[in-house]
Design a protein around this nucleic acid. Structure first.
Length: 790
DNA sequence: TGCACTCATATTTTT
DNA sequence: TATGAGTGCA
């Protein structure tokens, strides 16, 4: 193990204060139930922990690590624990830390598959023809690179978009296929040139000393498969392996794990086949279903006691998921009080659904229905597809209900952040061609395609980087006029920033200078689009994020793998997110709108993957329902605007799968009764019979829920839902704005006030048209330049 | 080169 | 509907 001596992650050290641990004993074991304890104490040999939703799997997993350490089975750096997201990794680190207190400095090999692979690959980069300081490309860079190759291959980029090829290649990499291993059956991919371009792409990455996300795993697996000695080292080193969310592993990750686990064979995988919802990006449920075959003698422990949801919610979820075949099978149970039945309500259209949910949220916030008031933070709306969010955003903006959208473009994926990062990258290493390409003409410097081609040619014929190429081009007067002057400034700037980096100047200062001197900040200050202020805000935020790093290098290294941005502003807000984004989260109150066939289950899923697709959709339904702790409300709309066209659809088939005993139907009879269907033409017998059947089953019309619903809507007629809040805002609203005033809104941009009505303003937005908006969300339009980030 | 216009297109998303 | 990409013109 001499090779490991210089690496702090492997260095032998006295990691545990044995005294501290001895004094603590193992009190954590007492906090576990029998199954959890069994899973924690089965330290040796392969273990599969089947952990249903809300059964305390993170607790079991972290306690297991604590137990391994405190029993002296392993040192902290001999335990390999992998997760899928940084968030999960962070959470586990914190919890292990809490369990062990001062006794452990940290667990260096706890991280995402990708983060751990980066560490490994940096140590062995030369084996795959890379240098230790390789850069990691994100999806955007990947596509740009592929586009160049596609165009060079003379393929019509319109019919065969690079994005699609990126997807195909990702798929291959997920299956651990290097270009020479792609099976003949795939030869037809991407106009019969997929494999060929894949090969070129890998070559190009090598020259750029770069890898994409898929490569991180692919390269490491390749090294393990082709360098026995290297593999053997790690097999010996990692005494215990733990894997979270095993049902989400793809083939490459599976191979990686299996190779590493062949040493001590102490592998513990935690997962839930019922929560496998990432099949479309390469996850193989088969991995978890097959575990016992792969690891003979494996111990299987089922965690079935749920600590999250009420029995009704659990029963509804179980009812739905039981329609799936080929499950490992678990029966969740709970000690919690019965609670409320899962509520089901149908609406005329999507807007009304949004309106109803908005009102329902406000009433729950005030604490009606004999329940305690719920804070907005405890409520979430989970949708199948992100376009469903709009209806809610529009509605909530109108009624002034604070909300937060989770997911969507990540902070580090935003254009302005990526541009800024490219400047930072160039400051650190001017030879970074991809970064240079990104910003040569951002902001506009009069360097169009032609000028850029000249730079490329110059660089290529001299075998130097683009910055060097540009210098030669300028020196030889290959470029003249405005472009030449601007390019000169840019090149000088890059060299100056690089000098500052080498001189050890404060990285924050360098960052600010680079953004200012390059004209990038100014570019957004002069931009009149509604997004511009937000983008400047983001840039400020980025510079702030720099503060927690020693230098730019460290920051860039870190950021290429961390794509999440947890900024929780203090105010209480309702969360809106997709079902996928909700996995792993829980909320006391959950709304599940849009349960209509075609939308959920998604037509496209079913068309593309047939029964497999449908089953994955069903698991998504299961994930959705099991997010709820106390109140789950499922809803559907008879009509919905899809791509600007009204469409009618049937309620989701999953609704029929809900066990009637655990469902309370809130749908008012008048809403769907009689001639409704005939009149609209959209309501088929199927809908009505479903509703009526459900209603009859649950005795819907006489149910307490329905009565409450009625009385509540009557009450609402008399008093405004958020009167108290409006009163407060009224004052400021009236004094703050005048008709005709120019104002700004985060989402709609700039506009002029046309009318004022209490705290509601009618505003004619320049871009977004006429809207009625609550004054709270409006600020006076600042003239550009007022609010300068640096 | 940059702007305005037209046209096709349209899940889920982490690293 | 609304967004992005591509095309044509100044």
């Amino acid at each position: 193990m001499s090779d490991f001596a210089n690496d702090s992650d492997f260095r032998d050290r006295i990691p545990l204060s044995q005294q501290a641990l001895a004094a603590r004993g193992a009190p954590y074991l007492d906090e576990l139930n029998a199954a959890q304890r069994e899973a924690v104490e089965a330290l040796d040999g392969p273990v599969l922990m089947l952990a249903g939703a809300g059964t305390g799997k993170t607790k079991a997993l972290t306690t297991r690590i604590a137990h391994l350490l405190s029993t002296g089975r392993a040192r902290p750096n001999e335990i390999l624990s992998v997760t899928f997201t940084n968030k999960a990794a962070r959470e586990m680190k914190n919890r292990v830390g809490r369990l062990l207190g001062q006794a452990v400095e940290g667990v260096p090999w706890l991280g995402t598959f990708h983060a751990i692979c980066v560490k490994l690959l940096r140590r062995h980069a030369e084996l795959v023809g890379l240098k230790t300081n390789f850069t990691i490309l994100d999806t955007d860079d990947q596509v740009r690179l592929l586009k160049q190759l596609v165009v060079a291959a003379g393929i019509d980029e319109k019919r065969w978009p690079a994005r699609q090829l990126a997807h195909v290649i990702d798929g291959w990499k997920n299956r651990a296929w290097t270009p020479d291993k792609v099976p003949a059956g795939e030869a037809g991919a991407f106009n019969h040139q997929g494999i060929e371009i894949y090969e070129q792409y890998q070559e190009r990455l090598k020259t750029l000393n770069a890898v994409d996300f898929g490569d991180l795993l692919l390269h490491v697996v390749w090294i393990f498969q082709n360098h026995e000695d290297v593999l053997a080292q790690y097999q010996r080193w990692f005494k215990y392996i733990l894997v979270d969310e095993y049902q989400d592993t793809n083939v490459a990750q599976y191979l990686w794990l299996r190779l590493l686990a062949q040493g001590h064979k102490n592998i513990c995988c935690v997962g839930d086949d019922d929560q496998s919802i990432y099949g479309w990006r390469g996850a193989e449920v088969g991995n978890i279903l097959r575990f016992e075959k792969d690891f003979p003698g494996a111990k299987v422990v089922r965690l079935e006691q749920n600590y999250r949801s009420t029995p009704h919610i659990l029963a509804a979820a179980s009812g739905v998921i039981s329609a799936n075949e080929g499950r490992l099978g678990k029966t969740l149970f709970t000690d919690l009080d019965e609670g409320e039945k899962v509520r089901l309500i149908g609406h005329w259209d999507g807007d009304e659904e949004a309106r109803w949910i908005g009102e329902e949220i406000e009433s729950m916030q005030r604490g009606t229905r004999g329940l305690e008031p719920f804070s907005l933070d405890t409520m979430a709306i989970l949708v199948r597809a992100s376009h469903q969010m709009r209806a809610f955003e529009d509605r909530f903006l109108t009624i002034g209900l604070p909300y937060r959208v989770i997911g969507g473009p990540r902070f580090y994926e935003r254009m302005e952040i990526r541009d800024a990062m490219a400047y930072f990258r160039l400051a650190v290493s001017p030879e970074n061609d991809l970064a240079f390409e990104r910003i040569v003409n951002t902001p506009k410097r009069g360097l169009g395609d032609k000028a850029q081609q000249k730079i490329q040619m110059e660089a290529r014929s001299n075998g130097v980087s683009l910055v060097e190429g540009a210098k030669i081009l300028l020196a030889t007067k290959g470029l003249t006029g405005k472009g030449a002057i601007e390019l000169g400034k840019l090149v000088l700037g890059i060299e100056r920033w690089h000098g500052l980096v080498q001189a050890g100047v404060s990285h924050i200062e360098i960052a600010e200078q680079a953004l200012d001197e390059s004209g990038y900040t100014e570019h957004w200050q002069n931009d009149k689009t509604p997004e511009a202020p937000g983008r400047l805000e983001n840039l400020k935020e980025l510079v702030k994020a720099l503060e927690s790093f020693e230098n730019l290098q460290g920051f860039l290294e870190h950021v290429s793998l961390i794509m999440d941005n947890e900024s929780d502003e203090g105010e209480e807000k309702v969360s809106i997110m997709t079902l996928h984004a909700a996995k792993g989260l829980e909320f006391p109150v959950v709304f599940l709108p849009g349960w209509e066939d075609g939308l959920f289950p998604s037509q496209r899923s079913m068309d593309e993957s047939g029964l497999k697709g449908l089953e994955e959709e069903r698991r998504l339904a299961y994930v959705g329902i099991t997010r709820a702790e106390e109140v789950a409300t499922i809803s559907f709309a008879g009509n919905r605007m899809v791509y600007g066209q009204w469409q009618s659809q049937m309620p989701s088939r999953f609704i029929d799968e809900l066990p009637a005993d655990h469902v309370e139907v809130l749908t008012p009879p008048g809403l769907y009764g009689g001639g409704f269907g005939a009149a609209s033409g959209g309501m088929t017998g199927g809908i009505q019979s479903t509703i009526h059947q459900k209603a009859a089953e649950a005795d819907g019309y006489n149910s307490p829920g329905w009565k409450r619903l009625q009385s509540r809507s009557q009450k609402r007629g008399m008093s405004q839902p958020s009167e108290a809040r409006n009163m407060v805002i009224d004052m400021s609203a009236i004094s703050a704005f005048t008709v005709g005033e120019r104002v700004f809104h985060q989402k709609f941009g700039y506009g002029a006030v046309t009318a004022i009505e209490g705290d509601k303003l009618d505003i004619a937005f320049d871009k977004a048209g006429d809207k009625k908006v609550v004054a709270k969300f409006i600020t006076a339009a600042a003239s550009a330049g007022d609010d300068v980030p640096f």
